[in-house]
Amino acid sequence: MKRTRDAIPSNNAWMQALLAALSPLATIAVVVVLWWCCKVLFEIESFILPSPFEVARAFADDPRPFLIGSLESATSAAFGFGIAAIAGILLASVLSLSRRVERSVYPLTLFFQMVPLIAVAPLLVVWLGYGRPAIIASAAIVSVFPVIANTLSGLRSADPQLLELFNLLRAGRVRTWWSLALPSAVPSIVTGLRIAAGLASIGTIAGEFIAGIGGERAPLGVLVMTGLRTFRTDRVFVAVLLAALVGFVVFGCVGLLSRLLLRRWLA
């Protein structure tokens, strides 16, 4: 059989990809082992620090509420992120059309960034009631600012030479925005969306702490609180880990979509 010359390098490439995938897993394994060692060596009570096995068992014994909770939280995070993305891009675009409007409204959007979410969440309950709308609102509020800030700076980054061209071709403001400023801003917008994706899942869990409803379809934030109240620290751990996983998934989806989008821009 004939062997091609690059058979060995491509094999190597495979190995490298495998190693790249394995090395973070190895780090996680080390952390889990350390965690277990601490627990055993210092004889820590399970309600303070459950062992990795106890956490795994807590999930395996009764996975249903955790899976439902993850789905609930992921849905809220996705909606919150979507609203923040659309509202953020639109608001930044409106702001960028007029310097004066931008100067008067931008500080207000900064306020959104500065206000502690935990302090606003009770108000969201007052306005939207307990449950999903308040949770989505909470996710949207924390994640909207990076979208606005990055979109604005991206819209301003359009090449002055191309702006001159558009000026020469007598393109109106809206046309210039659509055909020049917005496409130029895509890389910055994507950066903003990536940050927002991470923040949206944090906002979701925080919102659920305050506005979440327990019961059959309790989201992860509520499962954390119930675990605490019933001294089931193992269940708290499961919910926290799943919350992190939800964050990863939302972040990963946005990252994947943005890579597809950017391929055209960076090509």
Binding site: L168, S179, L180, V186, W265
Partner: peptide, 26 residues
């Protein structure tokens, strides 16, 4: 019509759409 020292093409558009741009803007 002005031809600049640099080509000043929009990097995200194909050649065809770059050339069509002045008409699209009208």
């Amino acid at each position: 019509a002005f031809v600049f020292q640099e080509p000043r093409l929009l990097p995200w558009l194909t050649l065809l759409d770059n050339v069509a741009l002045p008409l699209r803007l009208r």
